[in-house]
Amino acid sequence: MIETPRLIIRPWQESDRVPFAAMGADPEVMAHFPALLSRAESDAMVDRIGLMLADQGFGFWAVERRDSGDFIGFCGLNRVNFLCPVAGEVEIGWRLVRAAWGQGFAREAAQVCLDWGFAHGLTRIVSFTVPANMRSWGLMERLGMQRRADLDFDHPRVAEGSPLKRHSVYEALA
């Protein structure tokens, strides 16, 4: 679907389910999410992503290394479908296996996904994460996204009192 010198960003395959489930069960990968994912929850997420891709024409695509063919995570675009200041907007999101961290893969994938979104008519793309997730908001800044503190919110799907409740918002404009 989208190729970079090191990555293939593509629709999901059945073979992605096992490594995706392992990623969702990794406490370091999931440190800024409310819970680890069981295999059933992981498979359900892959199914939802497949429906999202079919319905919207975009979504969270699988990310594969060109040199090895290994699935290393996902990156892509999705409409924010819960009540918050950016509801209905298109967000960019990513999640990679720990072995792929620190090698520029997330930035490479995110940049081409932003470019794809703007080339396909989007004029604004947002992203959000918890303030403690320095890797993610650092990437947002490296991508040239601007901090929008006026849009920060308490995530309605995160329990009251959780340190993961508050989310910081960034935006990129075409």
Score class of each variant (00 low, 15 high):
Asp16His: 05
Ala21Gln: 14
Ala21Val: 14
Ala21Leu: 10
Glu28Gln: 15
Glu28Lys: 11
Met30Glu: 08
Ala31Gln: 13
Phe33Pro: 01
Ala35Ile: 03
Leu36Gln: 11
Leu37Thr: 09
Ala40Tyr: 07
Glu41Pro: 04
Ser42Tyr: 14
Ser42Asn: 08
Ser42Arg: 10
Arg48Asn: 11
Arg48Met: 10
Ile49Pro: 01
Leu51Met: 13
Leu53Lys: 04
Gln56Gly: 09
Gly57Tyr: 07
Gly57His: 07
Phe58Glu: 04
Gly59Arg: 00
Phe60Tyr: 14
Phe60Gly: 03
Trp61Ile: 04
Ala62Ser: 13
Ala62Thr: 10
Val63Arg: 00
Val63His: 03
Glu64Gln: 14
Asp67Arg: 11
Gly69Cys: 06
Asp70Leu: 12
Phe71His: 13
Gly73Met: 05
Phe74Thr: 11
Phe74Cys: 12
Gly76Gln: 01
Leu77Val: 02
Val80His: 05
Phe82Arg: 12
Phe82His: 15
Leu83Gln: 15
Glu89Asp: 12
Val90Thr: 15
Ile92Pro: 05
Gly93Trp: 00
Arg95Pro: 02
Val97Glu: 14
Val97Ser: 14
Arg98Val: 09
Ala99Gln: 15
Ala99Phe: 07
Gly102Cys: 05
Gln103Asp: 03
Gln103Thr: 02
Gly104Asp: 06
Phe105Ile: 11
Ala106Asp: 08
Ala106Arg: 04
Arg107Pro: 02
Glu108Cys: 02
Ala110Trp: 02
Ala110Gln: 06
Ala110Tyr: 04
Ala110Gly: 09
Cys113Tyr: 03
Cys113Gly: 07
Asp115Ser: 13
Gly117Ser: 08
Phe118Lys: 03
His120Ser: 01
Gly121Arg: 07
Thr123Gln: 14
Arg124Phe: 02
Ile125Glu: 00
Val126Phe: 04
Val126Met: 01
Phe128Glu: 01
Thr129Arg: 03
Pro131Leu: 05
Asn133Arg: 08
Met134Lys: 14
Arg135Thr: 07
Arg135Ser: 10
Ser136Arg: 04
Trp137Lys: 08
Gly138Ser: 09
Arg142Ala: 14
Arg142Pro: 07
Leu143Tyr: 08
Leu143Ala: 07
Leu143Ile: 06
Gly144Glu: 10
Gly144Trp: 10
Gly144Met: 12
Arg148Gly: 01
